[in-house]
Design a protein around this nucleic acid. Structure first.
Lengths: 155, 155
DNA sequence: TTACCATATGAATATCATTATCAAAAAAGG
DNA sequence: CCTTTTTTGATAATGATATTCATATGGTAA
């Protein structure tokens, strides 16, 4: 897979079109609307949230929730979007054109802070190696209470 | 919460009874069957898998799937059981009478290896602190291909 | 451009895991 | 034993995601 870090939207679009063409799939206005909404709003979306925002940003288009699910799956399969599973809060998606990172999640308000830590990545590879695994991926989520929620709780 | 590491089954049972009593709840044969099955099979179970095993181990008992869900939630709330969320594979539960650990998961065969690494834990606390968070929990899962599956793939 | 055909779409329906409801059963405490 | 409260299993409800299907649309070859 290509390295998608820090691509402009046009570059991302070219990449997407290439993937579609290679698979005999079609470039549609719905697919573009979903990709551009993700690009312009580099946050973490549930399928439902994204569906609502896409409809708001593209009122001229007819977009169904099923298409949002289908497109997110397609984008994720091809590495243009990544997801995290947040237990009860459900699955959230974000555009994958930024460097690898993990997530620090506030259990009170749901805020998500991204971070990356090379030392931990190194240790993870070491652990996998010790157990005879070839590492393909990892998931690291830290849960806590953010500064603001700490203040609110103590009131 | 008490430290539950390395308890014998009898000790765990006493702990469970104390929790129930403190909350005005009742000690039932279904609840005991579920706890003992988890204790005797220190693996990772989906609710469905555990339901089937409990019925197999205790054919004399009437046990419904709803009770398994309810009891797992109860045990988890009280720290006797811990769970991990495995994306498409669903949520899995295990007895929580062993030291804290994280999971290394084979993407091919689903095998789960447990490990613990103090250096990573330290780094996680440091990251949380840097971002103003009070850390309450974390989730770390490493995905890869285990030794055996590597062999099978190269055949 | 046009015509054709494969793919994509939205609406509706199905699915699947989990949760809630409720009448009957069982535990705890006198 | 009684009485009260909680628990139970069966079933229905829920909610997120996936599938179906008739129609619409994109890509392409002439």
């Amino acid at each position: 897979m290509k390295n998608l870090e820090m691509l402009t939207y046009d570059e991302l679009l070219v990449e997407f079109k290439n993937i579609l063409k290679a698979d005999g799939l079609k470039f549609t206005s719905q697919r573009e609307a979903i990709l551009s909404t993700l690009y312009e709003n580099p946050q973490h979306f549930t399928s439902e949230n994204l569906y609502m925002l896409v409809k708001q940003k593209h009122p001229e288009l007819s977009v169904g929730i099923a298409t949002v699910y289908r497109t997110l799956a397609l984008l994720e399969e091809n590495g243009l979007v990544s997801s995290i599973s947040l237990g009860i809060q459900g699955k959230k998606f974000e555009i994958a054109n930024k460097p690898h990172h993990d997530h620090l999640i506030c259990e009170s308000c749901g805020k998500i802070v991204e971070f990356e830590n090379e030392k931990i990545e190194d240790l993870q590879h070491q652990i996998a190696k010790e157990n005879g695994f070839v590492l393909t991926d990892h998931l690291m989520q830290l849960y806590g209470i953010c500064t603001e929620c700490q203040k609110n709780q103590s009131k």
